[in-house]
């Protein structure tokens, strides 16, 4: 299936070009018209992304997540393994950092242990909410992100609880 997955992109493009052939469309002009929009979009996005990357980098540098996760792990003892807290806190904030934490968990405990399986489900079933909200609203210049962020983060919270419950029910 993984090998099959690689064929999806060329198949979609093949289908598009085949239809354009049959309908004798001015394909290259259309392609350029669409692609030009990408440049416009990016010019709005770049600085917004930079602001986000900078603030996340500062926060990561402060090692605040490890301090926080130690504290929370003491409160939530038993329900969620303490090793998972850094991942849970980082997942909505930084894609690269949460990926690194997942890899670290794999290395320390192994991908097929209880912690490794839970980390897999958390990493695989949620996404970097801050980044997605920044990109989707930044591209059109909407500044009011309150609703999207609160709903997105609330959904992440539910997602993590679900991930732990599903993993427990599924694997043990």
């Amino acid at each position: 299936m993984a090998a099959l997955g690689e064929y999806i992109l060329p198949i979609i493009i093949l289908l598009i070009t085949a239809t354009a052939f049959v309908k004798r469309l001015p394909a290259i002009d259309l392609f350029i018209e669409g692609a030009t929009e990408a440049i416009k979009c990016m010019s709005m996005l770049f600085i917004r992304l930079l602001a986000l990357v900078f603030s996340v980098k500062l926060l990561l540098n402060a090692h605040i997540f490890h301090v926080l996760s130690d504290k929370i792990a003491m409160i939530g003892k038993g329900a969620i393994p303490a090793e998972l807290w850094p991942l849970i806190l980082l997942r909505p904030v930084s894609g690269a950092a949460s990926l690194a934490v997942t890899e670290e968990i794999y290395q320390l405990y192994g991908p097929d242990t209880a912690v490794g399986l839970m980390a897999s489900v958390i990493q695989g079933s949620t996404d970097t909410t801050l980044y997605i909200v920044t990109v989707y609203f930044g591209a059109i210049g909407i500044k009011r992100t309150k609703e999207a962020l609160s709903i997105g983060l609330a959904a992440d919270f539910i997602g993590i609880i679900t991930a732990v419950l599903v993993a427990k029910w599924f694997f043990f």
Binding site: I12, I13, I16, T17, T19, A20, K23, L25, A27, L30, F31, I32, E33, G34, A35, A38
Partner: peptide, 9 residues
């Protein structure tokens, strides 16, 4: 780019 073609098609 490709989606613009797909849209017209």
């Amino acid at each position: 780019g490709f989606m613009k073609i797909a849209e017209s098609a």
